[in-house]
Simulated scan of single mutants.
Amino acid sequence: MMTNLFSVFDPTTKIFNINLNWLSTLLGMSLIPYIFWLMPMRMNMIWNLIIMTLHKEFKILMGPQGHQGSSIFFVTLFSIIMFNNLLGLFPYIFTSTSHLILTLTLALPLWLSFMLYGWLNYTQHMFAHLVPQGTPPILMPFMVCIETISNMIRPGTLAIRLAANMIAGHLLLTLMGNMGPSLSMLFVSFLIFGQILLLTLEVAVAIIQSYVFAILSTLYSSEVN
């Protein structure tokens, strides 16, 4: 029998003798997206600006024939490669993008999917693409061979370019670092300064190579539309 009508409002929800009734006060804040009550950090604002800039650039490269929203895929590809490139610059962290097993895993399925899509849907356009406009008839067989070979080596050039640039910078940093114990204090200070400059260059190379990989992938996809 209820002794008091207002006893239903008493805090009675307990787990391990911890009163959880007042958590309902914060429940509404957890359901509202953080963008409405939390100011975004400068890093988030910069990253959103980079993403929107890349989205606009990739959309221009793909042209009006490009599929809606496909630029997001290349922005994601750029982000993944750049993240792995920059992560490999920290000590004792494995640089996955310096190995062909990863770069080929990214480049080969992309190129193969573009080729299958192009030859299955735009066969005449793909045949016409093998002969550049204005080629003399006598040179057409040679141009077909050259264009075919250049098309076949595209995934290899994408993969080797990324891996070679990552390997070269890390090897140079390692070789310069191994010279430290055999140098005097004066030369060690110059060596450290040179290492800092080289590390700054490697950061730029890591960003540029991820951008080049994404841009070339976008150009390859635009050729089959």
Rank of each mutant, 00 (worst) to 15 (best):
Q133H: 10
L112P: 00
G118T: 12
L38V: 14
I72F: 11
L20A: 11
L54W: 07
L49D: 12
R161T: 13
I51V: 11
G169T: 07
L171P: 00
L38D: 03
L199M: 13
L31Y: 05
P181F: 04
Y220C: 02
F213S: 04
G28N: 09
T174E: 08
N48V: 01
D10N: 15
A163K: 04
L5K: 14
A159R: 06
F90I: 11
F94D: 11
I208S: 13
P64W: 03
Y211C: 05
S30C: 05
I93N: 11
I149S: 05
L27P: 00
A163Q: 04
T200I: 07
G66T: 07
L120D: 04
T174W: 10
L23K: 14
L23V: 08
Y117A: 06
A204I: 13
H170W: 06
T123W: 09
M62L: 15
Q133P: 00
I80N: 01
L219R: 15
L197H: 04
N17M: 06
I32Y: 01
H55W: 09
Y34S: 15
E202D: 11
T76Y: 03
I215F: 13
P91D: 05
P40A: 07
R42C: 01
S210M: 02
L216W: 07
W22T: 14
Y34L: 12
V188L: 12
M82W: 05
P109C: 09
N178D: 08
L31T: 06
I80M: 13
I207F: 14
I72M: 10
A159M: 12
I146P: 00
S24Y: 08
T123F: 09
Y211E: 02
K59F: 02
I196H: 03
I207Y: 06
Q195I: 10
P136M: 09
F9Q: 09
S79I: 08
L175H: 07
M62V: 08
G177F: 07
F114S: 04
R154N: 06
S182D: 04
N165W: 12
Q65E: 13
L31G: 10
Q68D: 15
I81T: 13
V131D: 03
E147P: 00
V203P: 01
M52T: 13
H129I: 00
T218L: 02
F58Q: 05
L130V: 04
G134L: 06
N19V: 08
L31P: 01
